[in-house]
Design a protein around this nucleic acid. Structure first.
Length: 199
DNA sequence: CCCTGATTCGC
DNA sequence: GCGAATCAGG
């Protein structure tokens, strides 16, 4: 694949939108994120942040003092340019309502054995598909312990902490989220059908 | 470990 | 110009 005008254009667009190089590469196809980054640099738009407030002097390459060219053009006037209207970005439907997780791992850990567990949303008012998915996942879960939790392991608790049959999902998390895909599905609800159910 | 961008350098 | 390899963080 080569950098056609269209591809470059898309690159520019996505880059200015704050998309990561890997995302852009994925979108473009046929290139790696390295290629994207390389191109970004060659295009001279490495700095996503507009002309910063004259922040720090470039350490590596002190700008070749341009006698007549003030290094801050943008701020002053840009009448021709239509304001880059903030697009809501409806690509990924965000929950907007991070339905409280079943109780954080830490919290769980300090609940004395024998205590009635806080109600978990995991078995109620959740889309059947998500539930089915979870059930399936929990069968193949890695069953890791609290200490084995890492940033990349699903922290969804499974079982009763008061019994030996307690573990954490442990599957790879969805980036940015604390849970694997399946559990994200039940933890973060689309804010839809979720009417208060007076017990 | 997963990801991010930045840089280098042979092509 | 290109981008894999590498570097340097988070």
């Amino acid at each position: 694949m080569s950098w056609t005008d269209e591809r470059v254009e898309l690159l520019k667009k996505m880059w200015s939108e704050g998309q990561s190089a890997s995302q852009i590469a994925k979108e473009l196809g046929g290139v790696t994120r390295n290629a994207v980054i390389g191109k970004v640099h060659r295009l001279g738009l490495s700095n996503r942040t507009g002309p910063g407030p004259a922040a720090a002097a470039a350490p590596a390459q002190p700008a070749p003092a341009a006698p007549s060219a003030p290094p801050r053009p943008a701020a002053a006037a840009a009448p021709a340019k239509p304001a880059p209207a903030e697009e809501p970005e409806a690509e990924t439907e965000e929950p907007a309502e991070p339905a409280p997780p079943p109780v954080s791992a830490a919290r769980r850990a300090i609940i004395p054995a024998g205590q009635p567990l806080p109600p978990q949303p995991s078995a109620n008012e959740i889309s059947p598909e998500a539930l089915a998915k979870v059930n399936e996942v929990e069968k193949s879960a890695k069953r890791i312990s609290l200490m084995e939790l890492t940033e990349r392991t699903c922290k969804w608790p499974i079982g009763d902490p008061a019994t030996p049959d307690f573990w954490f999902c442990g599957l790879p998390v969805q980036q940015g989220k604390p849970y694997c895909e399946a559990h994200v599905g039940v933890a973060f609800q689309p804010m839809s059908s979720r009417r208060d159910r007076r017990r």
